[in-house]
Amino acid sequence: MAVKKRFAKRFWGMGTAGLVCLLAVSTTGCSSADPGSAGNAGERTAPLTKSEDLHLPIEKYLFSNAETVRLEKGRFALIGKCLRRLGLGHGIESPGPAPGPRNVMERRYGISDLGEAKVNGYRLGDTGTPPPRSLAAQLDSLSGAEKTQLTSALHGEADPASAGQGGLRVNGVPVPVGGCAGEATGRIAGGTTGHTGPSEVARRTNFESFDASRSDARVVRALGSWSRCMKEKGYAYPDPLAAMSDPAFQGKSPTPKERDVAQADIRCKRSTNLIGIWFDVEAALQKSMIEKKGPDFSAALKAKNGQLARAASALGDR
């Protein structure tokens, strides 16, 4: 077990610097992204094929998909408990796996998975996960009165001003302020923020580093190289996000041309090391931004861990 743990730590320790090192043929230094790493490029065995395999420093302060699932399961456990208190035993079906982006890196600099691009062009592939029944569908299956009762209980919508003060009741029981959803969110959030999910400082930094990276000289040069590479293949785009935003690629299904452009995009990313350079620059920017706001980020991490702990205990005493 201890060996495994150490290995895992070592593996992830080189996750940023090590991976970037291999990618960063022309960038300014491998150690800048993670000076604490003991790894070196020679230890790496698998080639990087997807940008989602890279991890920015900010991800620690945001919620991964798995963490979002844990958070939401806890929140829905509390919502279910609240609905039962209001005599609405049928409740609502809670969400399945988080269906959003795999992580902040997945399509941050555009696409990077050549296999997917060959099939889907710039589009998202279907993950094949069956969706939970939508809230709209669940509400539509109820009678008018039941629907009103459930939305009142969930959201406390009927009369927000008097909710919880004896005004809004379901089955004679007072509806909490903000409904069961509001109550559950408040309990998981804890403290004074009143909302679940990442702290504002983490969300803002996630964008500020991206924004700043776009005008970094190394990124500008790499984007220029990528753009020239695309031009040689007959496509004119200033950057990969512009390519994926091409109005010609927004129809119902990808055209052969879209698939060609998407593959050229990734091949040019690889030959110019665009993702490696961009990631390296942004990781260094984030590291410095996080260091400058040390106490804020400590608080952000504490808030995140608190939410996850409260979600876990909510699941435990359903």
Partner: peptide, 14 residues
């Protein structure tokens, strides 16, 4: 950006 690219903001239920 279009086609679900770049940074993002995600919102859970309610």
């Amino acid at each position: 950006r279009s086609n679900y690219g770049g940074p993002w903001d995600s919102f859970g239920y309610n």
